[in-house]
């Protein structure tokens, strides 16, 4: 009898350390955040329940609509670029080449660099008047691009920086995916007379589907929360052109001291991430079972 009770408890015991930490430092703060979204909370004073007023206010706030649009644009462009560049490079690095480990290491370096510092470096690189990027363009006879000071270029600049920072992660994931596909399948396709592209398109790519899903989902989650590079490089400007939901949470909470409103924004952010993830699982889901 005692043996059976013990056996039931054992998995929970293994879960305990992780869940104590998660409950104390993630889940309870999360529930508090949910509650704050329903309050007026001027950060330094205690929160006061106001129902759904913060969410009503969101629907009327032009800043929120701009942030929402920018976040979606950012997510879709960076995730697409990360995944495509990551996949192409993974395929190239999967070819038996001298020095491919070196290439892999180099491509992964941005991933392990501190985000705040590299954002500062990119801000210097993008500088309109004496940035090295415009100096390079100057050599090619191209007029200086106002990277961070025009509404047209600021978001592309942040996307470029973010793709640089993260594509190495996707390479590793795709390389792993490629290496778990039996080589014999591909070879069989080639023997059957398929061109290399056809072999990739019809044999490798379908088998990579679960990996693509993993890469897309994880990239989406991290892109949805984009903050540091925006904060360091543009602060959300010029105008509202790079204001993202992550930046808006920060501005509302730490500049305007409206934690309740900031929490409401982050609840929306969470919902968007959830919806995206669900669509992605649906889109890939059925075909993943094999």
């Amino acid at each position: 009898m005692s043996y059976r009770i013990n056996r039931r408890i054992i998995p929970y015991l293994f879960l305990l350390p992780c869940f104590v930490a998660l409950i104390l430092f993630s889940f309870i703060p999360f529930l508090q955040g949910l509650y704050f979204a329903l309050t007026s909370y001027p950060l330094l004073k205690s929160p006061e329940f106001i129902g759904f007023k913060n969410f009503e206010r969101l629907t009327r706030d032009p800043l929120f609509l701009a942030s929402l649009r920018n976040t979606l644009v950012y997510m879709i462009t960076t995730v697409t670029l990360r995944v495509i560049i990551g996949l192409i490079l993974a395929v190239l690095l999967n070819i038996r080449l001298r020095g491919r480990i070196l290439f892999r290491t180099i491509f992964y370096l941005p991933v392990i660099a501190p985000l705040v510092t590299v954002s500062v470096v990119w801000r210097i690189i993008f500088d309109t008047y004496s940035g090295v990027l415009n100096a390079g363009l100057d050599l090619l006879g191209i007029a200086p691009v106002p990277w961070l000071t025009s509404t047209a270029w600021a978001m592309p600049a942040i996307v470029i920086m973010s793709v640089w920072k993260t594509f190495g992660w996707n390479i590793v994931v795709f390389l792993a995916g490629l290496q778990s596909i039996p080589g014999s399948l591909q070879e069989a396709a080639l023997i059957d007379g398929a061109s290399r592209w056809q072999a990739f398109r019809h044999v490798t790519l379908p088998l990579l589907r679960p990996t693509v899903l993993l890469a897309v989902v994880m990239s989406t989650i991290s892109a949805s929360q984009v903050f540091d590079q925006v904060y360091v490089m543009t602060g959300g400007g010029p105008g509202y052109s790079t204001m993202t939901l992550g930046q808006m949470v920060y501005t509302a909470g730490f500049q305007d001291y409206e934690m309740g409103y900031a929490s409401a924004v982050s609840v929306v952010l969470l919902l968007i991430t959830l919806i995206f993830t669900m669509i992605q699982f649906k889109g890939f889901g059925q075909e993943v079972e094999y």
Partner: peptide
């Protein structure tokens, strides 16, 4: 000059003035 980026440091906004431009 058009307004600088919000993240710009003093060096970035001063550079043209400092260089006499």
């Amino acid at each position: 000059a058009v307004p600088p980026t919000a993240g710009a440091s003093a060096q970035e906004v001063q550079q043209l003035f400092v260089q006499g431009r």
